[in-house]
Structures are given as C-alpha cells and as structure tokens.
C-alpha cells in the first residue's frame, strides 16, 4: 500500500525515546522526511507532528503527594500544544496536516494499562483533538491519537501512527486507535 507520505516533513517530539525512534523509522521507510532535530525551528515547517506522551508505569493519582508531579505529566500535553500551534500556519496554507498523539490506553479502559498520569494527560489530548477537528478540520488537517496498552511494542505503536498520517486516513479526525492487543474491555 502506498501511504503517500513521500516527502512529507515530520517532527516527532516527546519524552519516550523508544517510541519516537520507531515512529521515525517507520515513517522514513514510507518516504517521509524526518526533521533531524525536532525543535522550535522545525515545527513551523512540519506537515506532520507526532507528540509522544511520557510513560510513568504504575503511576497512581492518589499516591501522588506533590502537585508538581501532576503538572509534570500535564506539561507533556502543553508541550504538544506549543508544537501543534507552531506547525498550524503552514498546514493551513498547504491545506494538509497531521497531528498524532501517542498516549495511554488507560484513558479509555481502566484495565488496558497501568499508568494513571499518562491516562489523565491523554484524555486532555482527546478533548483537544476534537477542538482542532472542529476548528481546522475542513482545511485537510486531522488530529488523532494512538493509545498504547497491554504489551504493545514501539513498532506496533509506530505502525498505527503511520497509518493515521497516511492519505487513506484523511477522513479520520478526533478519533483514537487503541493498540493494546485486545486487553482493554471497555467497548466505547
């Protein structure tokens, strides 16, 4: 399948290095061009921005004792907002853009993952994706999320991310693809 990603410029940001590297590798394999050093300089040029949320295995909201830990997780979200906003003008001009968030499947099903801080942050991004879709979706720009759970590998996640960036996913926006090997039992 030609995903029609040849020549698209990609910025991948976030805290989780393994997932970021896998996203770069798979997208590069499809002909996309990866920004060498994702930074404030590269965002305004990006056709595709992928933001990977931090992973805090076993995090428990009731065990958090310092509110700063809540803010640290939330900063993953606001960092993504800054990158997305920087990329938006060019996407609007080109009438084409892709935003993909990689977060925790616990955002949708309590049993899909065990990372409550990541679930919290991801839910903010799911709300944001709906807002972006409503505001700029008619300009060929989509905003989606891949939620990882179970024992998904970085590669599993990167494959779903790459699909959401493809031309075939042009009519998907404000959606989530859960990559959890089927462990989450929530239907919606």
């Amino acid at each position: 399948m030609d995903l029609q990603l040849k020549g698209r410029l990609v910025s991948v940001i976030g805290a989780d290095q393994g997932t970021q590297a896998a996203c770069r590798r798979v997208l590069e394999g499809e002909g996309a061009v990866i920004a060498a050093a994702p930074s404030e300089l590269s965002y305004p040029l990006a056709d595709i921005v992928i933001a990977v949320g931090g992973v805090r295995p076993g995090s428990d909201l009731l065990e958090v004792s310092d509110p700063d830990d809540l803010y640290a997780a939330w900063d993953d979200m606001t960092d993504a907002v800054s990158a997305y906003r920087a990329a938006l003008p060019r996407m609007l001009e080109n009438k084409w853009g892709r935003f993909v968030w990689v977060g925790s499947a616990q955002a949708k099903s309590v049993d899909a993952e065990a990372d409550e801080l990541a679930a919290m942050t991801s839910l903010g991004m799911l709300g944001l994706n709906k807002v972006i879709t409503g505001e700029v979706g008619s300009n060929g720009i989509t905003a989606n999320a891949v939620l990882r759970g179970g024992i998904a590998t970085d590669e599993d996640v990167a494959n779903a991310v790459t699909f959401l960036c493809s031309e075939g996913a042009a009519y998907l926006s404000g959606i989530t693809i859960t990559v959890d090997g089927g462990i989450g039992s929530g239907i919606f």
Partner: peptide, 22 residues
C-alpha cells in the same frame, strides 16, 4: 465544538478520567 470553549473541552475529560481511576 460549536462554542469557543477550548479550555473546558480539554481539561474536563482528564477530570472525569481521574475520578474513574480513583
């Protein structure tokens, strides 16, 4: 999304999720 309502749209879902997890 029919209202200029960005902040609640973004922060209310995490609040609901937090209570579900608690």
């Amino acid at each position: 999304t029919h209202l200029p309502h960005l902040l609640p749209n973004v922060v209310r879902p995490p609040v609901a999720g937090m209570h579900r997890l608690m």
